[in-house]
Amino acid sequence: MTTTADSAPVKRRVRTGEGWGSYFSGGVIVLWCLLPFYWMMVVAFRDVSQTFNTTPWPTHLTLDNFVAALNTSGGNNLLRAVGNSLLVSAITTGIAVLLGVTVSYALARLNFKGKGFITGIILAASMFPGVALVTPLFQLFTDAGWIGTYQALIVPNISFALPLTIYTLTAFLHDLPWELEEAARVDGATRGQAFMKVILPLAAPAVFTTAILAFIATWNEYLLASQLSRPNVEPVTVAIARFAGDNPYIQPYAAIMAAGTIVTVPLVIMVLIFQRRIVAGLTAGGVKS
């Protein structure tokens, strides 16, 4: 900032004016997005008899609902489902990002025949409605004896996550200054070394962004998991949907809200961890050469 003493007050006033506008619009968006989560948490911490109480702030605080959510006596096993989700999401993200990085590198950097065709196919795959795949996949996995296995969840999830990772990474890699790769090669690096030591560190912010997106998409996947999993491998989305209370005729809303809160926590933690990496990567990458 090259603000001189004379112009500083004027500038500040202008900036606060803009600030109010952006705070207001930002606040609206945050409210819009977070209100359902807020209500989920309010109900989760509220006594079960007050579930339908509409007081907008937390009242009748209790942890009973969490105890109920984690209780395994009624055939529920939330922690196992969280573990399943973590496993499926982590493996899916890992493989999708690994494949995505290599494919994106090829699409962004190499000239080969059929590049446009491959790009088109990937785009088409991401446009395909998932619901249309449920029946064929069920058939396929039944024949293969995969129903109720982890791979039955991981393999389709990878194919959903890949177009996303490939598209975001290709766009990012395309904009990297490739002179850097050439510099590395002249400095004595093989193509592989140049990629690993120069391009990949610079692409880290994009890699982490796509990893988060892929992880969240997989974590939230419900449709396929509801058909292809069995209770021992089911992810949290399915587990919560099947949540059973003491009385089979009453939906245990409060316990479901508590389960939802528990399930959101790992996501928030993961995003926070990776977000720090993203910000760190962005500042380190001040490329403008």
């Binding site: 200054p177 050439e182 510099a183 400095d187 990458g285 490329v287 050469s289």
Partner: peptide, 12 residues
């Protein structure tokens, strides 16, 4: 050894 027009320094 090569010196590039935009220097191509490794930013990280």
């Amino acid at each position: 050894a090569m010196v590039f027009q935009n220097y191509a320094l490794y930013p990280h």
